[in-house]
Structures are given as C-alpha cells and as structure tokens.
Simulated scan of single mutants.
Amino acid sequence: MPEHGRELTTTATSLRIVDVINQLEGARMSEIAAELDLANSTVHAHLTTLANRELVMKEGNEFHLGIKFFHLGEQARHRKPEYEIVRRHAHELSNRLNEEVAFAITEHGRSVIIFDENNDPAKEGFQVGRYFHMHNSASGKAMLAEWSRERVDEVLDRWGLPAETENTIQSTEELYEELERTRDRGYSLNRQEALEGLMAVGMAITNPDGSVLGSLDVSGPPYRLSEEQIVPELSETVTQIEREIESR
C-alpha cells in the first residue's frame, strides 16, 4: 500500500523517468519529455543525475536502464533466506511436473514473481520481476485468501479489478466468493483470467507465525494442466517448504 506523508517532487520525477525508459525499452530525451510533459532541460538534469549514479546509460541518442538495477533486484529477491528454500523446492517441483513453477510475493498490492523455474532454457526466468494484479492470478488469489477483508479491500481500492481476458473476475462480490472457495479447497485457480490459454494452480506459503511469505503456483496450458495431478504435488511441496522454514 502507498506510504502516506510528504513526497519529494524531484525524486518522484526521476523515478517517473525511469519508468518511461523501462516502458519504452529505451527512449530519447525528447520522447521522455513529451511522455511526461516536461521541459527538455528538466529531463536532461534528471538523466544526468541518474547516469552519474550508474542507473541509466546512453547508447547513441537513447537512454536505457543500467545493469545496476539488475544488481539491486538480485539483492531484493535474495534478502530473505526463506526465499532460497522456496527456490530450491520450486526447482525440484518443476522437474517432477515438467511445468513452469513460480514463486511470488506481494508488494504494494500486486504480486511480483521473484523466482520462475522452467525446464525450457528459453523460458526460464522470463517472468522474474513481473508484476501481476492479484484478483486474476493464482499466486495473487492464494495470498488474498489468507488476508483479512480489510487488507483485501485496500488492494481493491488501489488497483480495482481490471479485466485482462473475458474470464477475469469483474465484481467484488464474485472475488470474495472465489476467495471463499479457495480457502475451502486449499488452493487457488487462474482459469485463463490473466492470459488466454494459460491456467495456473497456486497455494500460499505461510511463515511459522501465520503470516504469508508468498505463494507458489504451477502454470501451463489448460489441456495439459490437471488439478488432480498438480494439487497433491504442489501441496506436498508447500508442506515441505513450511516445515523447513520452521525448523531453521
């Protein structure tokens, strides 16, 4: 959830510039200025500061994000020793099922994937760092089902229920009914709600104190993904992870 308090306009502008460079996958100074409705001189000053801090780099006439962001991201996703425990078990589960297995946590009301295990070298790690809305992803719904209604409402107030496919949940009442079903059966489902042709089964991973560490999900095309096959394997893996975390 957003922090309340004084926000520095200068810092916010620099971060908006970073977002634009990321979204455009590289941008000229004039493109950034037009996108943010800023003067070229203002954008130039911010880009100079970011470049001096090695956060952006210039190639020809375009600015790109620096590799330093990768280094910072790696530190973030390894900051908790529990994450490495999950990654190891996720890798083993992916090998057993021959399906993609992702570990997601929540930040600022969205799910973000920090580990993505896949037997296909071309796809491995492709999802890492991607943010997803929580109402239409298996990982998100698994975590929402563990939260209080007040906390879920905070997420909905900030992000709403954007539709990404015709299967996306579109009403608050429908979402709460789905979360109740998730709690009853012990796992969440994404039935092509975020992407056509992709189904996922997810389960929350809880800490010894009952708080949610994150969620693990298995994804693949609906014709190949069977709940009967996936759920027992996923459940056993989550149990092993939670036991190992508790025994640390």
Rank of each mutant, 00 (worst) to 15 (best):
N61Q: 13
A34V: 08
L50E: 02
R53M: 04
D37R: 14
N40V: 02
H44V: 00
M57Y: 11
M57I: 09
D37C: 10
L50N: 02
M57P: 00
N52M: 09
A34M: 14
H44Q: 10
H44M: 05
L36F: 08
K58H: 04
N40P: 02
L36P: 11
H44N: 04
V43P: 03
K58S: 07
E35A: 15
E54W: 08
V43C: 05
A51Y: 01
E54Y: 12
L36D: 08
R53Y: 06
L50T: 05
R53A: 11
S41V: 10
L50M: 06
F63H: 14
V43L: 03
E54R: 12
M57K: 14
T49P: 00
E59W: 09
A51G: 04
E62F: 14
E59P: 00
R53F: 08
H46G: 00
D37F: 11
L38A: 07
H46P: 00
L47I: 00
A45Q: 09
N61S: 12
G60R: 06
L55V: 01
R53I: 04
H46M: 06
T49S: 10
A39G: 13
L47Q: 01
N40G: 12
E35P: 07
A34K: 15
E54V: 09
L38I: 10
G60E: 01
A39S: 13
L47V: 04
D37Q: 14
D37Y: 12
H46F: 02
A39K: 14
E54N: 08
N61M: 08
F63K: 05
L36K: 14
T42M: 04
E35M: 13
H44D: 06
S41R: 04
M57V: 12
L50P: 04
H46S: 07
L50Q: 03
N52P: 00
R53L: 06
A51T: 05
N52Y: 06
L55M: 13
